[in-house]
């Protein structure tokens, strides 16, 4: 995989000021995004996946949040402390994002055509009204919406959830971005629609060659769509590898736990093989993180070392190329 590196995130720290003190929602995250490849970011709710995405978009609500330290480089340009006007030229144009809630992510009082044209008008002002409308229709056709000439004049409430997510994708891709950030794009959709949307994203990635950051808590989705994976826990990446390595040789007990939480079916009988496993316990509060490894209280292979004397485990190279894991007692 010798592909062009288009986004580099280095030691990213995002802080939020709250009444109970400052918390680090993202604490030292590193990853790269390559052209035409998909990076999966996996983790439970509150692990800092979405905040990482918003930091890249420059959309961390400030106050209370801010990028406290670290770097985000997009095609060699730093996105931390960039002028707001400069960032607006990148946002929606070079880096676009789709969200988890297709039902509420579109503005209910404007037609979908209007909402697609808005982003085209902003970033491609040389196009005439007619060209813009034509492009909006093309985008709807591209994302597989039937009779786009008619749909372009409809309002969001006239479309189903899956169709609305397609419209969101159309908005995101209408300026042919280099990077698409998809924050749990299929979580709110039916399983059959989920597969369609993921299929669509893969197809469009092939056509347009963009890099995708796919944020999800569903390792099944990752296995189907991603090239590499970063597993996040409490604002940190605990394991990262290419998708095959990660699934074949998970090293972090948390990754293993997530995999065991995927329901598995016997392919011949169609029955469940066994009871679904879960990861015991809850994600610790960011106000009250344990000393040592953040995962210690839920870990099946916890040792004395994890409980403080050595501090937090850091990402270390593991077996296999590009495979890193932050664990004192990795699975073999």
């Amino acid at each position: 995989m010798t592909s062009e590196k288009i986004l580099v995130v280095k030691d990213l720290v995002v802080e939020f000021k709250t009444d109970r003190g400052t918390i680090k929602a993202v604490n030292g995250v590193n990853f790269d995004v390559f052209k035409g490849k998909t990076l999966g970011v996996v983790g439970e709710s509150g692990s800092g996946k979405s905040v990482t995405a918003l930091a890249i978009m420059g959309l961390i609500p400030n106050p209370p949040g801010r990028v406290a330290s670290g770097q985000i480089h997009f095609n060699g340009k730093s996105l931390v402390n960039i002028e707001p006007a400069e960032m607006r030229k990148i946002r929606g144009n070079k880096i676009a994002m789709i969200f988890q809630e297709p039902m509420t992510s579109l503005n209910p009082v404007f037609t979908i055509g209007n909402q697609i044209e808005e982003v085209i008008e902003l970033h491609q002002p040389h196009l005439s009204n007619v060209e813009r409308r034509a492009k909006a229709v093309d985008m709807l056709r591209l994302v597989g919406i039937p009779s786009p000439e008619k749909r372009v004049a409809e309002y969001p409430h006239q479309l189903s959830g899956g169709m609305r997510q397609r419209v969101m994708i159309a908005i995101a891709l209408s300026c042919e971005p280099d990077i698409l950030i998809a924050d749990e794009p299929t979580t709110a959709l039916d399983v059959t629609i989920q597969a369609q949307i993921l299929e669509l994203m893969k197809k469009l990635q092939k056509e347009l060659g963009m890099g995708i950051i796919l944020i999800t808590h569903d390792l099944g989705v990752v296995a189907e769509t991603c090239d590499s994976v970063a597993v996040m826990y409490c604002g940190q990446i605990v394991e990262s590898a290419d998708v095959k390595t990660l699934f074949n040789h998970p090293q972090h007990p948390y990754t293993k736990g997530l995999m065991n939480s995927i329901p598995s079916f016997d392919s011949t009988s169609g029955h469940k093989k066994e009871r679904l496993q879960t990861i015991e316990g809850m994600v610790p509060s960011l106000f009250d993180l344990p000393v040592g490894c953040n995962f210690q209280d839920r870990c099946s292979s916890v040792t004395e070392k994890c409980r403080g004397s050595q501090g937090e485990p850091t990402l270390m190279p593991a077996k296999g190329e590009g495979h890193t894991v932050a664990c004192f007692n990795p699975l073999s």
Partner: peptide
Amino acid sequence: DYVRTARSKG
């Protein structure tokens, strides 16, 4: 949410 979408357009 739609306000966030609008911001994400730039």
